[in-house]
Simulated assay, not measured.
Amino acid sequence: MIRIIIVDDHAVVRSGLKMLLNAQKDMEVIGEASEGDEAYQQVEDKAPQVVLMDLSMPHGKDGLSATSEIKKHFPDTHILILTMHDDEEYLFRGIELGASGCILKSAPHEELMKAIRQVSQGDAYLYPSATKRLMEDYMNKIKQGGQVDSYRSLTDREREVLALVAKGYANKDIAEKLIISVKTVEAHKARVMEKLQLKTRPELVEYAWKKGLIGYTR
């Protein structure tokens, strides 16, 4: 079961989402919150896999601040931002703060389910127009000679695999640790190497060390 906490300042919205999600065979809403501080406490107490995070909550801590705090102290919690506004400033900021994705409240129910399942597996999710704008932003940076941090392009799962490979874990050990197949580990590792443009394991270890993912040892 995918354990979910809903964060929204409207009780009617929370109630509707709870009914919708609990009707799914693989989902369970284990908590609700109306603002960011309450959301943090719910995450601390109940350890959800996914948090549906509203951005605009005027009567308490906002969604962006809550996202930052939760990801800082509970990095394994996946946050899917819920927003009414197709606003790229909030989208980019949310991703920078560690959110796994963003979806519009006006999206079809089927798309919301897809997004929740996707981020619960450690993958990222963006609605189509957001993906297009992120790609445009990326290309603009390239044209302007800016540097794009390839690490930001890795999914949460790929970052986990990167850190474990760099620490010396074998594929079988990583598979057991993350409860996935060896083939899936190999696929993640291949995508990491491709995204980071690395050729060898020593290069990967050096990269992970520079990123602070492992301690430096000889």
Rank of each mutant, 00 (worst) to 15 (best):
T217G: 13
F74Y: 15
R159D: 10
A99Q: 03
H73E: 11
V205I: 14
L213I: 10
M193L: 09
T131W: 00
I174Y: 08
P75D: 07
Q121F: 03
P108H: 07
Q144D: 15
A208M: 11
G168M: 04
T184I: 01
M139H: 04
I142G: 01
M193C: 04
Q121M: 14
Y151Q: 10
I103H: 02
A208L: 08
F92M: 10
H73V: 09
E206V: 11
K189W: 03
L112I: 06
K105S: 10
H73R: 09
K195I: 00
I179V: 08
S106M: 08
I95T: 05
V148R: 08
K199T: 04
K141G: 14
E194K: 09
G215F: 06
V205S: 07
Y127E: 11
I79H: 01
E110C: 01
Y125E: 00
G168I: 08
F92Y: 15
A187E: 12
K189G: 02
K141P: 00
Y138R: 04
G94K: 06
R133H: 13
I81T: 06
A107W: 08
G94F: 11
R152Y: 13
K167A: 15
I116T: 08
K211G: 04
Y216H: 13
R201N: 09
Y90N: 14
Y138T: 06
L82I: 02
H78D: 07
L80C: 01
G146Q: 15
D173T: 13
I116G: 08
N140P: 00
T77E: 10
Y151S: 12
D87P: 03
I174M: 13
A170F: 12
M84T: 15
I81Y: 05
N171F: 10
E110H: 02
E110R: 07
P75H: 11
T131E: 15
M84P: 03
D149C: 05
D137H: 15
D137Y: 14
G215E: 12
R157G: 13
P202T: 10
V185C: 00
F74P: 12
V165A: 13
Q197A: 13
K183I: 03
I116Y: 04
S150N: 11
G98K: 06
Y216R: 15
A124I: 05
L91K: 03
W209R: 14
T184P: 00
E110N: 03
I79S: 06
R159F: 00
K189N: 05
R152L: 14
R93H: 12
Y216G: 12
R191Q: 07
L126K: 01
V161M: 07
E194H: 07
A107P: 04
Y138P: 02
Y127C: 01
D123G: 03
N140C: 04
A163N: 04
S120C: 00
L162D: 06
A166P: 04
T83A: 02
L162S: 14
A115V: 10
G212W: 01
I79Q: 06
K177H: 12
L112Y: 05
K114C: 00
E203S: 10
Q118V: 02
G168Y: 04
T131H: 09
P128A: 01
G146V: 01
A187M: 13
L198S: 03
S100E: 12
E158C: 01
A124C: 11
Y90I: 09
